[in-house]
C-alpha cells in the first residue's frame, strides 16, 4: 500500500474522544497546551479517515473490508508500540504492510484464517512514532469475536 498522510486535527480528536467518553474539557484543551497533550493511545487507529482510498464508492476498504464469501472478518488482536508521542498539528506518514499469515481450527471444527497487518506512523523526518500490529481472523458466518 502506498503511504498516506495523517494530519492530526483537533476536530478529529474531539470526535474520537466523544466516542470513547473522554471528558470534553480535557480534549478541548489539548491544543491550548504548549506543547499540545499527546493523543489517546489508540487514536492512530482513526487514521483511515485520512486515506484517500478509504470508503471509495461508499464501500468498506482496507484491512477491515468485508469478505466476498459472506464470512466475517473480525479484529482478534491489536498491539501498539509507542516510540514518540503524537500531538495535534503533527503530520504523519502512514505505511501499511502485510505481516504473517496462519490458520487454526476453530472450536466448531471450521478453519480460521489469521493475518497480521503492520502499520507504521512516522514523522516527516522518518522517525517512528507508533507501530501498530493488527491481527485479523476470517471466520464463517456467526462464528466469531468482535
Amino acid at each position: 500500500m502506498a503511504p498516506s498522510r495523517f494530519v492530526v486535527e483537533q476536530g478529529h480528536l474531539l470526535a474520537f474522544g466523544r466516542a470513547i467518553g473522554a471528558p470534553p474539557p480535557g480534549l478541548a484543551g489539548l491544543a491550548a497546551l504548549d506543547p499540545p497533550a499527546p493523543v489517546p493511545p489508540t487514536f492512530v487507529a482513526a487514521s483511515a479517515l485520512h486515506d484517500s482510498e478509504h470508503l471509495r464508492n461508499l464501500r468498506p476498504t482496507g484491512p477491515l473490508a468485508a469478505l466476498p464469501d459472506g464470512g466475517s472478518l473480525l479484529h482478534a488482536e491489536q498491539h501498539f508500540e509507542y516510540h514518540a508521542p503524537i500531538r495535534v498539528g503533527d503530520v504523519l506518514e502512514v505505511e501499511r504492510t502485510d505481516g504473517r499469515r496462519w490458520e487454526k481450527k476453530s472450536r466448531h471444527g471450521g478453519r480460521l484464517r489469521f493475518r497480521e497487518v503492520i502499520t507504521d506512523y512516522r514523522f516527516p523526518n522518518g522517525a517512528l512514532s507508533v507501530r501498530s500490529r493488527m491481527i485479523l481472523v476470517e471466520t464463517p458466518p456467526a462464528e466469531g469475536m468482535p
Binding site: A15, A19, A48, L64, S72
Partner: peptide, 9 residues
C-alpha cells in the same frame, strides 16, 4: 464515524 471502521457488523 471517528475511525472510519464502518463494517456492517
Amino acid at each position: 464515524g471517528a475511525t472510519g471502521d464502518l463494517s456492517p457488523l
